[in-house]
């Protein structure tokens, strides 16, 4: 072998090994803090406890555990409306986003997702509503938070399952946030609502017996931790720590605490959502 190929070979080896031992970016290590921003109106993922006004949730617990394993980093939390999450990441107001945000192809233009929770939009109605199957909702008024990806999902589902079967399309009614949507459901302005399947067990525990889930979560997908496309090092080190949390059971413990054990994933995936 020539000297050059020796050199290339060693360089390649060095690159591979350094990639395997992922390192925290220098600025974060130096600062000792992690800047995270959440849309805190999304129980049980992230919300303010009404009794103590403390920021709590599944994402908060996962983030705290990750921060510990990343070398005892302190998290500096901030809050923002859902539509501002992506801009917050782009402007570096946040180091990464773990805020109940779905991994979607349309969002992968500017970000990469480390998928950590199975999810999917789900229909639900008031307990006394007659609807039994999801197709009973064809032609009815269905509401969801307008700043999410759910309006598009509802339209797609309606085309495939209502209009294709000769039934009238679902009428989409916008809402400002998940609380507003549930209010409209209670008042009868909408016949059914759509929320991420991860939020429904909590809503039901808060108001037992009021709501009833209809059908399965349609359009299965994942919630992902969002990273800037060029932030490969940070993404890889977080993925590593998350994988460790899954294998030693810390991940499952957090999910069970919030009643979402059924939404667990086997391992963290990169940009794995089908949409």
């Amino acid at each position: 072998m020539t000297r050059l190929s020796h050199f290339l070979g060693l360089a390649a080896l060095a690159a591979v090994t350094s990639a395997q031992a992922a390192e925290l970016p220098a600025e974060i290590k130096q600062a000792g803090t992690l800047k995270l921003t959440v849309n805190s109106t999304y129980a049980p993922m992230e919300y303010r406890d009404p009794a103590t006004n403390e920021l709590v949730g599944l994402d908060v617990d996962l983030a705290n555990e990750l921060a510990k394993r990343l070398g005892g980093l302190k998290i500096v939390w901030s809050e923002t409306p859902f539509a501002e999450l992506i801009p917050s990441l782009q402007t570096k107001r946040a180091d990464f986003i773990i805020s109940g945000i779905s991994d979607r192809a349309s969002r992968r233009e500017t970000a990469d997702f480390v998928d950590y929770l199975a999810t999917g939009p789900q229909f639900f109605v008031m307990a006394d509503n007659a609807a039994k199957d999801a197709t009973d909702l064809c032609g009815k008024k269905v509401g969801t938070t307008r700043s999410t990806s759910f309006p598009v999902e509802i339209e797609k589902w309606s085309k495939q399952n209502c209009e294709a079967a000769g039934k009238p399309a679902i009428q989409y009614v916008p809402g400002e946030n998940s609380i507003d949507v549930r209010n409209q459901l209670k008042q009868g302005r909408i016949d059914a609502a759509v929320q991420g399947s991860e939020t429904l067990p909590y809503a039901q525990s808060q108001e037992p017996g009021k709501y009833r889930i209809v059908g399965e979560a349609f359009a299965k997908g994942y919630q992902g931790i969002m990273f800037r496309k060029d932030d490969v090092a940070l993404r890889e080190v977080v993925t590593e720590k998350l994988a460790a949390m899954i294998s030693d059971g810390a991940y499952k413990a957090v999910l069970d605490k919030w009643g979402l054990g059924a939404n667990a994933v086997e391992k963290p995936m990169l940009n794995a959502a089908p949409q």
Binding site: A83, R107, R146
Partner: peptide
């Protein structure tokens, strides 16, 4: 806009909810 009346801001928001072009 927060009570879903489709005035100017509400409609502009709907566009940027879809394409993330907030500013």
């Amino acid at each position: 806009s927060v009570i879903q009346y489709p005035e100017l801001l509400h409609n502009a928001e709907n566009i940027y909810y879809a394409n993330s072009r907030v500013i």
